[in-house]
Design a protein around this nucleic acid. Structure first.
Length: 507
RNA sequence: CGGGAUGUAGCGCAGUCCGGUUAGCGCGUUCGGUUCGGGACCGAAAGGUCGGAAGUUCAAAUCUUCUCAUCCCGACCA
């Protein structure tokens, strides 16, 4: 008899967190490495999650007056050169297209030919190419605000990649807006930040902290960058999305000008903001356990999976009739303005394997239906927010009536669990030695999960920030927006500090 | 891009130090049977040019060089 592991995923989070992460992705069949270095293949189960993220956010963007458009994948090098900080920030990770065709190389292979007169950059972000269009579209104050979003892929030639968290090519959404005044652009920046945070908390069940980035962590070329940060189960921070106030920098670089009401020409004020497939990584690392993925119902591709239990043809007919009826009733149920997604698993597999398959995929509700349920008009229910053994017998009609409430409860449980975890691992630290102890693992060879978010004072100077980063690999994740600033002394140099900031190790 | 590790069947691994018959094991797969409200058991079978290239040798998974990929740590970053 084969030795059965206690958990479906090995290694466990405790044993090897990065290893666990990879196995969860694999076990849930979400994505895999491709033949192209650093690029992933997003498989149907992973892509379905992305489609849900897209659908929900797209609706929110449109509700707030934004419209979608599409801009080229390629950016002429000269466009890129217009904004100095922007160039510096992205130059090291750009893929460059230099030729327009391939020719026979005489050895049975192909070689690039037809060198381009101007080389093209594969977009790492689209501020410059979109800015060129905006310069043509914006002439008068009547053309503003201009609120555009694009769903696209971008390429950043990262040296170290990890599925969903950092890949050379990734999918994202980038909003680009133009405004007549500084205030209006700032308001837009904050409005989107709130929209993102609301989405993260309500749909992804991911508690986040909104804040502003320090100068060193800012988007290259932005005047200010706002972000929302979430805590993963290894207590590291993950920047889940950003919203940038670009001031007039990109407007000046791209010549986005308009005539105001007085007929005078002014540079416009722009913003940009984005979230990416990285959110899926955040989702995985925030909720999943040693049995695999756990999906919050609001974002799950499937809400309910039904596993029929049958031994022979006679039972099969009996069970399938019951299951078909149950399934169609459930499919008529609305869950957050969308039809409940229900699947009957008709694969010819052993029941136990099937159940574990869905546990690893993170489906919120599993129903195991056999002859006994048919006779009792009941369902046998397993919830992904509980242990695999913890199952309940429910009356079928009561279940149908309560399914939305159960899903909402699962959603709330996941959010609360993540929030409790963050609270337990977020501490105020005012002593330098304690700060260093907090972020130093006991086992240097094979570091255990340690640290968390430290709320500490910072004088505001780049030197202290850099020294802490150098010593501990700990960075300032953000200057939180929602706290009442409390004065104190810098954790590193002891100088006056205006506020506590969040220090953490990060992805 | 620096340091470390790994690459052998669909997956997980042993074998490599010390070169030597037909390259093994577990899971999975296929077939047969027994079980079965459950990640089962028994039996049989299929499946590998040992990441790639070049070299050393009578002989290479094993030694040498180069190369590619993946993972971990670091730097960089969403």
């Amino acid at each position: 008899m084969a030795q059965q592991a206690k958990t479906a995923i090995l290694p466990t989070r405790e044993e090897n967190y990065p290893g666990w992460y990879q196995q969860v992705v694999k076990a849930a069949d979400m994505a895999e490495n491709s033949d192209v270095r650093g690029c992933m293949v997003i498989k149907p189960w992973g892509y379905a999650i992305w489609e849900n993220i897209q659908r929900i956010l797209d609706d929110k963007f449109k509700e707030t007056g934004h419209v979608n458009a599409y801009f080229p994948l390629f950016i002429p090098k000269s466009f890129f050169e217009k904004e100095a900080e922007h160039v510096e920030g992205f130059a090291k990770e750009c893929a460059v297209v230099t030729h327009s065709r391939l020719e026979d190389d005489g050895n049975g292979g192909l070689k690039p030919a037809g060198p381009l007169s101007e080389e093209l950059i594969v977009r790492p972000t689209s501020e410059t190419i979109i800015g060129a269009s905006f310069a043509r579209w914006v002439n008068s104050y009547r053309d503003l605000p201009l609120l555009i979003n694009q769903w696209a892929n971008v390429v950043r030639w990262e040296l170290r990649t990890r599925l969903f968290l950092r890949t050379a090519e990734f999918l994202w959404q980038e909003g680009h807006t133009v405004h007549a005044t500084r205030d209006e652009a700032l308001q837009e920046t904050m409005k989107i930040l709130d929209l993102y945070a609301d989405f993260a908390e309500n749909c992804l069940a991911l508690p986040v902290i909104k804040g502003e980035k320090t100068a060193s962590e800012r988007f290259p070329g932005a005047e200010s960058t706002f972000c929302f940060e979430a805590m993963m189960q290894d207590k590291k921070a993950l920047q889940a999305g950003t919203s940038h106030f670009l001031g007039q920098k990109f407007a000046k670089a791209s010549e986005i000008k308009f005539q105001n009401k007085e007929g005078k020409e002014e540079y416009a004020w722009t913003t940009s903001w984005g979230i990416s497939t990285r959110l899926i990584g955040a989702l995985i690392m925030a909720h999943s356990d040693d049995d695999g993925l756990i999906l919050p119902p609001r974002i799950a591709p499937l809400h309910v999976v039904i596993v029929p239990i049958q031994r022979n043809e006679e039972e099969k007919t009996l069970v399938m009739d019951y299951v078909t009826d149950l399934c169609s009733k459930l499919r008529n149920t609305m869950y957050h303005e969308r039809k409940l997604q229900v699947k009957v698993d008709e694969r010819e597999m052993r029941g136990g394997d099937m159940i574990w398959d869905w546990i690893k995929k993170g489906v919120p509700i599993r129903l195991e239906i056999g002859p006994r349920d048919v006779n009792n008009n009941s369902v046998f229910l397993g919830r992904r927010d509980k242990t695999p053994k913890e199952k309940a017998n429910l009356n079928k009609d009561a279940f149908i009536e309560n399914v939305v409430a159960i899903l909402d409860e699962i959603q709330e449980n996941l959010y609360q669990k993540a929030l409790d975890f963050r609270r337990e691992n977020m501490v105020s630290i005012d002593d330098k030695e304690e700060f260093y102890r907090y972020f130093t693992p006991k086992n240097a060879e094979n570091p255990e999960i340690h640290g968390g978010f430290a709320l500490s004072h910072w004088c505001g100077c780049a030197e202290c920030e850099a020294k802490i980063k150098e010593d501990l690999s700990v960075t300032i994740r953000c200057l939180p927006l929602d706290s009442n600033p409390e004065k104190g002394k810098c954790i590193f140099c002891g100088k006056e500090s205006e506020r506590r900031v969040i220090f953490a190790k990060s992805y």
